[in-house]
Amino acid sequence: MAKRLVRWLIAVGGILFLTATPSLAGPPFVSDDPEPTETGHFEIYSFVNGTNTRAGTSGETGVDFNYGAARDLQLTATMPAGYTDAASGGTRFGPSNVELAAKYRFLHQDGFGFEVAVFPRLFLPSGSGVTGDDHASLLLPIWVQKDFGKQWSAFGGGGCTLNEVRTASFCQAGVVANYQILPKLQIGGELFHATADSQGTPAATSVGVGWRYDVSDNYHLLGYVRRGLENASETGRYSWYASILFTF
């Protein structure tokens, strides 16, 4: 599994850097970027997302807080509520998995040629018995970014999720190419893959399109849609994400 994931990362990474010719990244995409929130500033996302499978539709809504705590260091806390709408009937709501994370950028483009950061993310047990996982898990990823002039940027990477007994649950990887199409409008395309997890969920591959519109210096609208390509009926026929971003 590990060798297959490495080969996949090398292949899609090569495609990305050959086809992509500064921009903001991370949300609305599944893949993240290595750029932390500016020191002393906040980025707050009010979001909703969802994924449809043959079992029904599920997703989350909540608030994602990001603070630039120091140079190259971002602290993150995500407070979500989850929902499920089963195909067999019945909708359920409840607290989902609170996320705590810290992004640290340790390499810069002006010195290394790429920006590189680690972004470990801890998922706390939901405790609701309705939505979210009832156990803790930890995502350990590394993210890389390269800007090409004033309009194009490319970022991606991935990592593995560990559950509370420290065994690998699954690994994920993704790549994104972004283009500043207008002064206030940015669009991008993403290729994302997750391996099968330890509880029987099959591997998943998807392709998505995301956009960001800057209403002002402090208010921004983000959206994203993606389509499942592998085992879509079980892992996601289609997914979406929408948020209002407040920056100050």
Rank of each mutant, 00 (worst) to 15 (best):
R7W: 06
Y219V: 15
N52F: 11
L245G: 07
E43H: 13
A25F: 00
T57G: 04
S206W: 08
L100G: 08
N49W: 05
R4S: 15
D110I: 02
S88Y: 04
S88E: 13
N66F: 08
F47K: 03
V12E: 10
D197R: 05
F106L: 05
Q109S: 15
L18F: 11
W8K: 13
A203I: 09
N52T: 14
F65Q: 09
S46V: 11
N66S: 12
H135M: 08
V176C: 00
T91V: 13
V225C: 04
K103D: 01
H220Y: 07
S233G: 10
T84K: 13
L124Q: 07
L138E: 05
G82Q: 06
G228I: 06
H220T: 10
P141R: 04
S31I: 01
S88D: 12
A55I: 15
C160W: 09
N97S: 11
L124C: 01
D33L: 07
T37Q: 09
S126I: 03
G89M: 06
D33T: 00
G158M: 01
L229G: 02
K3T: 12
Y45G: 02
S126Q: 11
Y179T: 02
T21G: 13
A196Y: 01
D85S: 11
G59N: 08
W240S: 14
S128N: 02
V144H: 05
P34M: 02
R54Q: 13
G236E: 00
A204S: 14
R212V: 06
A81L: 12
N218H: 15
A77S: 12
S206D: 07
T167R: 15
L139G: 08
F170D: 12
L140Q: 09
Y179A: 05
H41N: 14
G200H: 10
S216W: 09
S198C: 13
G40K: 08
G189P: 02
Q74P: 10
A87L: 10
D110T: 14
H41P: 00
L140Y: 09
R166W: 10
V165R: 15
G223Q: 02
G113R: 05
N97I: 12
G149S: 04
L100R: 08
L140P: 08
K184I: 03
R7A: 15
N231K: 10
G26P: 03
E164P: 04
V98A: 12
L229W: 06
T61A: 15
F114L: 15
D85A: 12
A173Q: 04
Y45W: 06
P80K: 10
A136T: 07
P141M: 01
E60N: 14
L16E: 14
Y179W: 07
C160I: 08
Y238D: 06
G210F: 00
F17N: 09
E230H: 14
S96G: 11
P95V: 15
G228K: 06
G94P: 06
D64G: 06
Q180T: 06
S46E: 03
T167P: 00
A69L: 14
Y238T: 05
D33F: 00
D110H: 15
L18V: 09
Y179K: 02
V118R: 01
A86E: 14
L24A: 12
G149D: 05
S243W: 01
H193T: 04
L5A: 11
W240M: 12
S31F: 07
G149L: 06
G56K: 00
S58P: 02
G94Q: 03
